[in-house]
Amino acid sequence: MGRFIARRTVASAISLAFLVMAVFFLSRLTGDPTDLYLPLDASQEVRDNFRELNGLNDPILLQFAYYLGDMARLDFGTSLRSAEPALAVVLQAFQWTLVLALVTMAFVTVAAVILGSLAAFNVGGVLDRVATFFSLIGASAPDFWLAIVAIVIFSVNFGWLPTSGTGSIWHWILPVSVLFIRPFGLILQVVRGSMINALGSAYVKTARAKGVAPQPIIFTHALRNAMLPVVTVMGDQAAGMLNGAVIVETIFGFPGVGKLMIDSILQRDFAVILAAIMVTAVAIFIMNLLIDLAYALLDPRIRY
């Protein structure tokens, strides 16, 4: 197990190194940073100063070496907008995104697993049909539309909930609800399909012959076997959220990493963009590692 984690860490470090390289050279490909960073009407003197100050007159490979050195010290530079260290800005925003993703995924998991399992236990029953109907709608509805409609109904018409921002528990309800719907529909369907398989398996027959009641058959015998594909899809969905739920965060004015990235791109705040890319990449790597460990935890036949 320790060796597995070490191996995966090395492999991810290599991917990260390639990412670092790609980011550096791609951002140079977009043009001279002087043109990108400075206002269009900046004087030649200002431009020269800027070049000198940021080492842009050095050969490209030397610039890359400096850049690597900065990376190694976790120094991503300073945000142009806030004049704070870029990493601190990103971590601040990332906390919000992380909590949003965790809260949403917790609700999604509990709801989808319970409803999906019960739907699978009685295929074609009322619960199954209702759950399948709504999960298909949920999985296909675009979230920008849902977000706007939710604001119109609950904030504007009824005035029950704030339209955007943060500050109270009420501010969380709309973003979490909108983010909830799509993964919920998707994961419910995966749980249902996987559970139908597990409930039809031979070991469930054995459990019935032992006299095990329906509830433990579903949740003790079948569910753990059915969870592997569910965990895979859950990881995929959670990765999407950690990347920053760009649309939902932007619409609800939620100060997460998705909104931060959009704002930084629009204002060419390269240091922040770079830091945000690295932070989310590391987060996704850690999450994938956790998923692999979850496999081993769920299924004793999987050992690393």
């Binding site: 070991y203 054995t206 012959a209 006299g211 299924d299």
Partner: peptide, 27 residues
């Protein structure tokens, strides 16, 4: 069904072909 579950196991028990698939792999 509840009464029958009380009979399955303590009174009438069953074993199957292919014990690998009839035992739960995760317990």
């Amino acid at each position: 069904p509840k009464e029958r579950r009380k009979i399955n196991g303590p009174r009438i028990a069953m074993i199957f072909q292919d014990p690998l698939s009839h035992l739960n792999p995760v317990w």
